[in-house]
């Protein structure tokens, strides 16, 4: 057992998967460079020493190398491709959304695309174009599984599950959760460290985690917002409101079993999302809850999310963009008639 942050846990997951399976390789920008950074956020730092032939450093050509990852996956490799910032996924949308996601279906189930895609997201003082939460963009794309871990334990276990899954899997990583130590640490980083077991494990894709039990309201969140939800729950507990925090952690498929069990118990559901409120993942979860468990609700489903604006730069504005524990707590109080 050792204590690790998300960046280290992901690094260990990648190294272990590459040791376990010679088909696994990494492909991305500024990876595998001796003396380099290990990607934008150190996740692949130093892996080139052990795997000099399997850390493929690419030109700046996201559409090209995501397509190449797909092609390599089709011929039996297990590529892990990454972008430096999630926003750059949009450069590769054709390969992700028209090729990787559809190949299985178009082939009548004869071709597999075991492709893992990694993407750092979150508003972190860089202005609008290195900041978006892109989960929403892929939720309505059948053929891609989506995971979004909030802890180092889940990051390692979900990445391993993604590598072994056999389908295109997108793993979103939040820049403020990578770690709170080291030269490329983000200002405002949140502690997402976990005790990581020494033995091999996976976190199954499609299973949410109940982070905190409570009978009064269900708060559903993921990535950084799972931490905001827990902080809010602690504040609310002191006021006599017990919130159950469900870390969705897998966004496609969504775990309606766990969400449903909680909503049936509490009768109240709040979804917390970093990103514009319109057309977000929260909208989908809200509709899903209403359709499945509407009869159990004591009040309508609510969302706390960002305004419908690009991510602003000035810290005071960015902080207002990103939901926080205070806004989550305020929404819960309103739902509970306090």
């Amino acid at each position: 057992m050792k204590r690790m942050g998300i960046a280290e846990a992901l690094r260990e997951a990648i190294a272990e998967e590459m040791r376990r399976d010679h088909r696994v390789f990494c492909m991305g920008e500024d990876i595998g460079i001796p003396g380099g950074w290990g990607g934008a956020f150190t996740v692949t730092l130093g892996l080139e020493k052990e795997f000099p032939d399997r850390m493929i450093n690419t030109p700046i050509a996201e559409n090209g190398f995501f397509g190449m990852g797909m092609g390599a996956a089709m011929l039996g490799m297990r590529p892990i491709v990454d972008v430096q910032y999630g926003d750059f996924l949009l450069c590769a949308m054709d390969q992700i959304c028209s090729n990787a996601s559809m190949m299985r279906y178009m082939s009548g189930g004869t071709v597999s695309v075991p492709l893992v895609m990694r993407a750092p997201v979150g508003a972190t003082g860089r202005g609008a174009q290195h900041a978006r939460n892109l989960e929403r963009m892929f939720l309505g794309v059948p053929g891609i599984k989506i995971v979004a871990p909030s802890t180092a334990y889940d990051a390692k276990g979900l990445l391993k599950a993604a590598v072994r899954d056999g389908n295109p899997v997108m793993i979103f990583e939040h820049k403020l959760l990578y770690g709170s130590k080291g030269p490329r640490t983000e200002s405002g980083a949140v502690d997402a460290t976990s005790d990581i077991p020494d033995d091999d494990y996976v976190v199954p894709i499609g299973r949410a985690a109940v982070r905190r039990e409570g009978a009064d309201v269900t708060i559903i969140a993921w990535l950084l917002m799972a931490h905001a939800a827990q902080a809010a729950a602690n504040v609310l507990s002191a006021e006599g409101i017990e919130a159950e925090v469900v870390d969705a952690r897998s966004l496609n498929p969504l775990d309606y079993e766990t969400i449903g069990a909680s909503v049936k118990k509490t009768g109240r559901a709040l979804i917390v999302e970093e990103g514009p409120i319109t057309g977000g993942v929260g909208a989908e979860i809200a509709a899903g809850i209403q359709e499945r468990f509407g009869d159990c609700l004591r009040t309508s489903v609510r969302r706390v999310a960002s305004p419908d604006i690009p991510v602003p730069f000035a810290p005071v504005l960015e902080n207002a963009y990103r939901p926080d524990a205070a806004r989550v707590a305020a929404a819960v109080r309103a739902m509970c008639g306090r």
Binding site: N63, G64, M68, M70, G71, A72, L75, G76, S98, M106
Partner: peptide, 22 residues
Amino acid sequence: PAIAIVGGNIPVAAGMALALKM
């Protein structure tokens, strides 16, 4: 299966070739 968005198959082919080389 053929890829019907113009140019979309070119990175895929290169990736298949990368796999063959690896």
